[in-house]
């Protein structure tokens, strides 16, 4: 990621911080002129990504840390969420069949349905994983009548 950061957050991996996270995300997306309904979808997807790390990356722990960076550039929003949890196998992280009516497991579906692309990879030399997500700005920006710069 190389563009100017729209938002940088280091946050404790605890459920109590989710409300604060959403406030920061809504503010950042408003500054980026993202249409409100699209902003809420992005907020939901990032909230779900953070929940997954809290639930599966740091189970039973309250000392975990998350690093979130959002930037815009070349017509896209790039979102990067890094943790220091044990490495996960990306092959095991995929959307589930929505025809099954059962509680849980929807977070990846929400991310997958919201983002244009996403990828999860473990860090090579130490504990941690990085989730990167991309969304085309032209699909989510408010139309103002003029040609906006991304």
């Amino acid at each position: 990621m190389s563009g100017p950061a729209l938002l940088r957050l280091d946050l404790p991996a605890r459920a109590e911080t989710l409300g604060e996270l959403r406030v920061a995300l809504r503010g950042a997306f408003a500054r980026a002129n993202i249409e409100p309904a699209a902003s809420e979808r992005l907020v939901l997807a990032i909230n779900e990504a953070v929940c997954n790390v809290i639930r599966h990356g740091y189970p039973g722990r309250d000392d975990g840390i998350l690093h979130l960076r959002i930037e815009r550039g070349r017509g896209v929003l790039r979102m990067r969420l890094r943790d220091a949890a044990p490495p996960v196998d990306p092959a095991g992280i995929k959307p589930r069949d929505l025809d099954e009516c059962r509680p849980g497991g929807l977070g990846i579906n929400f991310i997958d349905a919201t983002m244009d692309s996403w990828a999860l990879r473990p860090l090579r030399r130490r504990d941690g994983n990085v989730l990167t997500m991309r969304k085309r700005l032209r699909d989510v920006r408010l139309r103002t009548g003029g040609r906006g710069k991304s």
Binding site: L18, R22, E40, V43, L44, N47, E48, C51, C101, R102, P103, G104, G105, L106, G107, F110
Partner: peptide, 16 residues
Amino acid sequence: TYMDSSGIAALVEGFQ
């Protein structure tokens, strides 16, 4: 004003 997947899971459990 907002509901994430954990809230949906609570509703699904009630429904089931």
